[in-house]
Each structure stands twice: as C-alpha cells, then as structure tokens.
C-alpha cells in the first residue's frame, strides 16, 4: 500500500490510527502542514488530495492509499506560487501558522468555484457561472480560521491572484 506525496511514493504506515496529518508532520518531516485543532475545526491542516482540499487531521493515512497528496511544500517547484507571492504583497499573514492551510484551501477553492460548485451562500444553485462575490469568497474560505486577524489581507491576496473584479 502506498500513496504519493508531492510526487514521491510513500508507504502507508502500518499503524492504522495514523492520520494523514501526523504522517506528513511526524513521519515525513513535512511540517508545513499545521496542526491547529486536530478535530476539523480550524483548517490549518488543509492539503490537496487528488487536487481536492481535505482536512488532513480528519483523513486517515490509509484512506489516502493509491491517491496523490499535495502539501504546501509541493504546491510549486522552485519559485513561489503566485498566491504565495500575493500573500506577502497583501500582508495576508501575521504569525504564519494558518497560512499553509489558507493557501492550499484557496488553490482548491478557486477550482471548485470555476467548475460551478455552489456554496452555502450561492443564491441560484442552477447558475452555471457563479460570481465570486464578497460573500461567496469569504464563505468558501470560512473553514480556515485565522486568529491574528489577517482576513483582509488573505482575501485581498486571493482576489489579486484569481479574480480581476467582483469579490470586493
């Protein structure tokens, strides 16, 4: 049994209790993925599983068997992802602890929006082209907590990277 983490094959741990988060942090030394609550409430542990955002604390490592995991460390090779650059530009972080989760979450959130997945605040569920409005963007990012209060900068960074207009 094996999964792929940032392009490299990784054996599934023998202890079935190991979460994907603890596999990354404690066994693979990929500590960019953060543990904030270990119960699915804060979003700090968000990673991409086959391109979809998941909470790695609520995902057992064995559930990722045969699947592909992308963490903050594997988001791009070499240079910075444009969203990472935008986070710096717009001061979208203070302590930096929720940041990897915010970034991974935003990358997948944009894909969900582009393919027309509705959110809790979408007015017309049948709408084929949902506008990423002020509320749409914030609602879709509300699973990622920030306690320093960098919310304005985070939203600005996402808008600057993915939305030319509409979210402000």
């Amino acid at each position: 049994m094996a999964l792929t983490v940032n392009g490299a094959p990784v054996p599934v741990p023998t202890d079935p209790r190991v979460s994907l988060l603890d596999l990354l942090r404690e066994r693979l030394d990929l500590t960019g993925t953060k543990k904030g609550c270990n119960q699915g409430a804060c979003g700090a542990c968000t990673v991409l599983l086959d391109g979809e955002r998941v909470l790695s604390c609520l995902t057992l490592a064995v559930q990722a068997d045969g699947r592909s995991v992308t963490t903050i460390e594997g988001l791009v090779e070499g240079a910075m992802h444009p969203l990472q650059q935008a986070f710096i530009e717009h001061d979208g972080f203070q302590c930096g602890y929720c940041t990897p989760g915010q970034i991974c979450s935003a990358v997948a959130m944009v894909e969900e929006w582009r393919r027309g997945s509705p959110s809790n605040v979408t007015q017309d569920l049948a709408d084929s082209a949902i506008e990423l409005t002020h509320d749409e963007l914030r609602e879709r990012m509300s699973g990622n907590l920030c306690r320093c209060g960098a919310h304005n900068g985070i939203v600005d960074a996402i808008v600057a990277t993915y939305v030319t207009e509409g979210a402000r």
């Binding site: 609550c37 119960q39 409430a41 914030r138 304005n152």
Partner: peptide, 17 residues
C-alpha cells in the same frame, strides 16, 4: 474546549476594516 464550540470570527464575519 474546542474551536468548533468556542466561536472565533471567520472570513465571512470579517468586513474590510
């Protein structure tokens, strides 16, 4: 004693300041 039951402002709660 958890972040699901102790409520913090989330993105949708926070306006432009």
């Amino acid at each position: 004693a958890s972040l699901s039951e102790y409520h913090l402002p989330v993105h949708l709660d926070v306006p432009d300041i």
